[in-house]
Design a binder for these strands. Structure first.
Length: 231
DNA sequence: GCCCAGGTGGGTA
DNA sequence: TACCCACATGGG
């Protein structure tokens, strides 16, 4: 089958970590909310905020739309940037009601390119959040590029990720992989697993890394894995 | 106390 | 275009 470098990386990660069963959510709406709450935020704190939203009965489009702003802000406070994220959630709900009559299924059935444009028009939704929603809530074959993806590409030498745009990196995956939403979803989840396991920002644990044979850092050829000064 | 965490948008040169 | 910064909370 396809033996592109990125497919080879996928095979290694899958063999090492196994299926990740992503996105961790029970409904498409929960995927959307989680994608917004996790912006530059540890997932642990997002989970807590999602639990609070459930406890207060706010994890549905209708209920969240009816909630007062200060209640919404207070409920998601643990996820950080709570004012900005509450505003973004309201922006998505406004889009849902104004363009799709409040029907989430209708919104998610929109052609992918159109939905992406609509999502990007919401203040607080950038390419990664939009693509997370497209992939994990709408089931579209778009690859999500995040900080973990950039780090993996950069350290393995597969791409100079720090110098390439989001679009360029996404194109890289789209060119080398078949457009399969299940594959894309699993792959991104595996990259996150790699990032949390060993491909840390400042303290990588290359000895335990399933990519160490492909990776300059793992081979000791890259920058010092344990920089003594600032990085 | 410092750095980090599944980003985004606005301002400035 | 390329940086710089604010946005906020919790954990190591």
């Amino acid at each position: 089958m396809s033996s592109s470098p990125l497919h080879a990386v996928y095979t290694r990660l899958y063999d090492h970590y196994g299926p990740q069963h992503w996105w961790p959510a029970e409904t498409p709406f929960e995927v959307i909310v989680g994608a917004i709450l996790t912006q530059n935020t540890a997932w642990r704190n997002v989970e807590r905020a999602l639990v609070r939203l459930k406890e207060r009965g706010l994890l549905s489009p209708a209920a969240m739309s009816a909630a007062d702003l200060d209640v919404l802000e207070d409920t998601i406070r643990l996820a950080g940037y709570f004012r900005a994220k509450a505003r973004t959630l309201r922006g998505v709900l406004a889009l849902l009601h104004e363009r799709y009559g409040g029907d989430l299924n209708r919104m998610l059935a929109e052609p992918g390119a159109t939905l992406r444009v609509q999502l990007l028009r919401v203040r607080g939704i950038g390419p990664e959040t939009a693509d997370s929603i497209l992939l994990y809530a709408a089931g579209r074959p778009v690859f999500v590029i995040d900080a973990y993806t950039r780090r993996m590409l950069s350290r393995t030498g597969l791409a100079p990720a720090e110098r390439l745009s989001y679009q360029e990196l996404q194109d890289l995956f789209h060119r080398q992989l078949p457009p399969n939403p299940d594959l894309f979803g699993e792959y991104h989840a595996l990259i996150v697993a790699l990032g949390k396991d060993c491909c840390h920002k400042q303290k990588p644990r290359c000895g335990a890394c399933p990519l160490r044979e492909l990776c300059a850092w793992g081979q000791g050829k890259g920058p010092s894995p344990l920089p003594s000064g600032k990085n």
